[in-house]
Design a protein around this nucleic acid. Sequence first.
DNA 1: TTGAAAGCGATACCAC
DNA 2: GTGGTATCGCTTTCAA
Lengths: 347, 347
Amino acid sequence: MADNISAARRGDGHRVTRVTSYDVARQAGVSQSAVSRCFKPGASVSKKMRARVMKTAEDLGYQPNAIARSLITRRSNMVAVVISRQTNLYYPEVLVQLSQRFSERGVRVLLFTLERESDIDVMLDQILQYQVDGVVEAARLSGPQIDLMEKRGVPLVFYNRSLKDRRVNSVCCDQAEGERSLVNGLVAAGHKSFGLISGPEDSAVSVERTQGALERLTELNIKSVTVVPGDYSYESGVAGLLDLKARMGKLPDAIICANDVMAIGCLDAARHQLGVKVPEDLSVVGFDGVGPAQWQSYDLTTVRQPVRRMTEAAVSMILERIEHPELPPERRTFSGILIDGGSARMA
Amino acid sequence: MADNISAARRGDGHRVTRVTSYDVARQAGVSQSAVSRCFKPGASVSKKMRARVMKTAEDLGYQPNAIARSLITRRSNMVAVVISRQTNLYYPEVLVQLSQRFSERGVRVLLFTLERESDIDVMLDQILQYQVDGVVEAARLSGPQIDLMEKRGVPLVFYNRSLKDRRVNSVCCDQAEGERSLVNGLVAAGHKSFGLISGPEDSAVSVERTQGALERLTELNIKSVTVVPGDYSYESGVAGLLDLKARMGKLPDAIICANDVMAIGCLDAARHQLGVKVPEDLSVVGFDGVGPAQWQSYDLTTVRQPVRRMTEAAVSMILERIEHPELPPERRTFSGILIDGGSARMA
DNA sequence: TTGAAAGCGATACCAC
DNA sequence: GTGGTATCGCTTTCAA
């Protein structure tokens, strides 16, 4: 331990050990604790000391080691964000916003993307090992999985998913309400027969949307309703349209898709494969309000999720829970914004 | 320190201290080092010991603390991925793939998204503090910034950016080559006048694309070429088209856009605002090969980047550099794949 | 205000 | 194969 500085480099110039607070302390002729204090906002250090230490820190290129700090403070300042591959592909805005909001608040994001839902157990272990302060889940978790996180004392906020029979923190867009308003508009405009293209079965959001639409259709006494499966992809929107036509014998008056990307696929297939006029002969609606939905070729009628507000809510909710773990579970539900585009005849 | 287990909980059930290897050791009646060894693959532990330890670890819900491990091993097993907001919004595939590839190799991703390029200095400090083992930069870095990372001994791989006058690790798609092949096809098909919509000035990729196209046009002795600025967004594709028309007096034969999203905007504006037939009266080409480029409304002629191969290359390049810091800088350049869609007349 | 010393929770190098 | 002990780089009492 004689000379950390020279020992810190190998012949090839690659640093082997980093500059530590001890190095700074020695160089500045102060104690190591003093150095530590200088980097702690609001600590009691004399002006002279601070200036001296900061100067040598700068010279040596010292940066406090966040890993070591985390070990002693038991705060990693990292939050895990778990997002499904699909969500980021079809709705990248969410991750971008979350990342930005956390970054503004000085919190680092450890990213986990899920290819298959089955990978989640391994991932939870990883998340726990990395001692994140909290988790934002834009994916489904089973009861036992939630139990695990709770037992470990890791605050958890669900983004756009929540288990009905469980008290968890969540930020959601009101999927059912959004669907109901779409149905209301369509029915009021005279549509009589409906086709629905649902999303992945394992997506709670997708189920809520399809259920919401179905319920409202039933309430309004609409009899002709057919549901076909989809998986949120463009291709499944195309296939869904053809599927509906085959099953119903002819096209319905309106098609309600569980997300925008499928609606876009459906719309494209109607126009380009079947030569059907949208919205004159067929109305198509989606959900999400993604960028492409506004493109002139589509001008989709849809429900936009208030992503900015939702991500802000999720971020502050998790940070509050980190500060105050005793806070009771909270559910924040945001209404979507009906975008009356040109892909559907609405009242 | 008498009873960690009971001390580990407060009245409300929130864990305050985690289960450590000491807890497991005590419970299992073995040494703490033994516990550690059991969690290290390939360590010499007897079957009996391993079984015993794993059992109590399971019972207690013990997971090794990755932070503590990182501190002693000087390996965080985390890699920083720096990506611009734009890249993830317009081209989400990249981040999804990178994340997936790292995850497969047992490496965690610390995500940094850049809103403005100016934020990058603060971010680099953050990256260094968190002791990441390496960095994948899908953003521009200045010379001094690269110096900083090198001085700190953090391996760095650029994704689709590289400084000409610097030896750095990078994985790139050959932007210029891609543009040249687009130009070749367009010129061979008889297009005489060209409009170019460039991307953000601070994006090296965008500059390479526009330059590549310009060079080839010059080589082929095409005189009528106008360049207008864009920013990669759909809106700037729309504006670019109108801008080109205004500046040239009439529309060119072909428009070359620095990315797909602008090409889509351009195409939409041509068809829906100007009533121009694409590709009959105007050819439009893009670059990237994003999902929407293949949608039936667009069927864009473009150059697809081999994202899968590129992300694989970036991931293995950075992991190799982490294992062997002495490896010399390497540049891997991939050719794009020409997608001969329906938005341009090509030879 | 400052410095000495005790951890945080693991790994790794020792003897045994 | 197993257990003791010295780190890793920091924060945090506790005296001075």
